[in-house]
């Protein structure tokens, strides 16, 4: 279970997180929505210890990771998988090597086992026979699938998704959404998804949290959110330029 308490983070003079509180339930998919550049990615990076807050706590299964050293943090990170925005595949390695990377890093599997596990993970994201390809030879959607395969290679408890459908055509976006739902269900994952793709949110999210001006202003089921009277949420969901969200 992930619990964020009173997080503060600023870059220069710009305050990105301003006393943010959020609980993420186990075995559910929580979607965090908010404006572009509103600090969603920053929030995600805090959860996995890539960034450290100026103030506040990040509790992963009760452990405050803001106080941990690198070694202990790495132990916590083994519970996580993360799918980056552009998949962040190592482009000096083949697809197979990318997926095998965490296995080679943290397990003592034999080459044969690794090859089998890689093939299994790729199959679970709907890919076969791409092990020898280089990431640059893949389409954006395929890259994201490989990224997901790598994220779940170690069978993590928590998977973080950084805008999984951005930059994809609607068909491909839909396919990725399906993949997230299936993976979550099959592996019983705790998923945290960042998105501003309104159509996807309601499809994949068990809970939806609205980030606005460094705080979570709404947190509820998709139904609750749809019924929300909060002007910010209303404007965001409607995609209207009229409302409290300042364009500039």
């Amino acid at each position: 279970m992930i619990k964020l308490v009173d997080l503060h983070k600023s870059f220069g003079r710009q305050k990105v997180l301003d006393g943010l509180d959020l609980d993420i339930e186990d075995g559910k998919t929580t979607v965090i929505i908010g404006r572009s550049g509103g600090g969603k990615s920053v929030l995600l990076k805090h959860m996995i210890g890539l960034l450290r807050p100026e103030r506040g706590q990040i509790l992963i299964d009760g452990t405050d990771i803001t106080k941990l050293n690198d070694q202990a943090l790495n132990e916590i990170r083994k519970k996580f998988g993360m799918l980056f925005q552009e998949a962040a595949l190592f482009d000096s390695m083949t697809v197979g090597e990318n997926v095998a990377f965490p296995l080679r890093e943290h397990t003592r599997m034999k080459e044969k086992e690794i090859r089998e596990t890689v093939a299994d993970r790729l199959r679970s994201v709907g890919l076969t026979g791409v092990e020898e390809k280089m990431p640059s030879e893949l389409s954006g959607g395929m890259r994201k699938r490989v990224g997901l395969a790598r994220a779940i290679a170690m069978r993590p408890q928590i998977v973080l998704f950084d805008e999984p459908t951005t930059g994809l055509d609607p068909v491909m976006a839909e396919a990725i959404n399906r993949l997230i739902i299936d993976t979550q269900k099959n592996l019983n994952l705790t998923c945290v998804v960042i998105s501003h793709d309104v159509r996807s949110i309601f499809e994949i999210g068990h809970r939806i949290a609205m980030l606005y001006e460094g705080k979570i202003i709404e947190n509820g089921t998709p139904e609750e959110l749809r019924a929300s009277q909060n002007p910010v949420t209303l404007q965001f969901l409607a995609g209207s330029i009229e409302g409290p969200i300042r364009i500039m």
């Binding site: 998988g81 993360m82 190592f90």
Partner: peptide, 14 residues
């Protein structure tokens, strides 16, 4: 810039 270094961190690799 393509977050590959972040990916390494995330995978607990230095």
């Amino acid at each position: 810039v393509t977050e590959q270094i972040d990916a390494l961190y995330v995978m607990a690799a230095n």
